[in-house]
């Protein structure tokens, strides 16, 4: 190959690019890079009031169509049976590090106190959709179950099985768990939640990105440590794709 300035430039640029790719595959370098997002977590939590609300919108500011994303139809006979029964026999259990484990039917939850909020759903990919969510504040369920003092996180176990049969799950800390806008939603835009949007119950954690908004929630488990569950990083996408556990940015 003749060495020309052009070749040096092109070769140098290609070398830099593959160097960056190699760095990105290095586990230690990835950890170093991840400090940026860990820093965002620390800064955001110190700037945010614990009870600071996500922006709420007027009804006419809603998206004409609220985009469905992720699982639109959970696989398996068990879910299909629940769907055919209109979720009459669906149970939401609250267990783990709680004093009084609970089980709620959807009808019970819908008959309880409710909160409606028109908020913006931000996908990690970049799109946003605004919709009105109605559901029961998570705090009320936690008060009923009585968190033990060792509890640090809440894990949301979902009915949708992803690739290789791994169930979807997500987790949040107690600051978000007791936030007034954190609800288990059973309605979107004043209609009973559709399957594509997470029927019968979907978590809303309004100060974080879309992948935290677990759908098809059937069990809430209070734990002291996330590392013992599934891949250990606190969520399906955190384990599988490397997304950050804190999704505030």
């Amino acid at each position: 190959m003749i060495i020309t300035r052009r070749n040096i430039l092109v070769g140098g640029a290609a070398g830099l690019l593959s160097g960056c790719d190699a760095l990105g595959k290095n586990e230690d370098f990835r950890k170093l890079l991840a400090l940026g997002e860990k820093g965002n977590f620390a800064i955001q939590r110190s700037l945010q009031d614990r009870m600071a609300l996500a922006k709420e919108f007027r009804p006419q500011q809603r998206s004409p169509v609220f985009r469905m994303n992720g699982t639109r139809q959970p696989r398996g006979e068990a879910y299909a049976k629940h769907a055919s029964e209109k979720f009459a026999n669906w149970r939401l259990t609250v267990d783990g590090l709680v004093a009084r484990p609970q089980a709620f039917s959807v009808a019970q939850l819908m008959a309880g106190p409710k909160r409606s909020q028109i908020t913006r759903h931000d996908c990690v990919e970049g799109w946003s959709a605004i919709g009105k969510w109605t559901g029961i504040p998570l705090k009320l369920l936690l008060d009923a179950a009585g968190l033990k003092s060792q509890a640090r996180f809440l894990v949301f176990h979902c009915a949708d099985k992803m690739g290789f049969g791994t169930p979807y799950y997500e987790s949040i800390d107690l600051i978000d768990a007791f936030h007034p806008q954190t609800i288990l939603a059973w309605a979107l835009n004043d209609e009973t939640l559709m399957i594509g949007n997470g029927a019968p119950l979907r978590l809303r954690v309004e100060r974080q990105l879309g992948y935290k908004q677990a759908k098809y929630v059937e069990r809430i488990e209070a734990v002291d440590d996330l590392s013992k569950l599934y891949g250990g990083k606190g969520g399906y996408w955190e384990d599988g794709a490397g997304y950050e556990w804190y999704a505030g940015i």
Binding site: A14, S18, G39, G242
Partner: peptide, 23 residues
């Protein structure tokens, strides 16, 4: 791919680069 970091599609890693160098 030659214009992106990383050169293959990896949203999580792209975000890690972006949100680290943003500081």
């Amino acid at each position: 791919g030659w214009a992106t970091l990383p050169s293959n599609y990896d949203l999580a890693l792209g975000r890690h680069w972006h949100l680290a160098f943003a500081w």
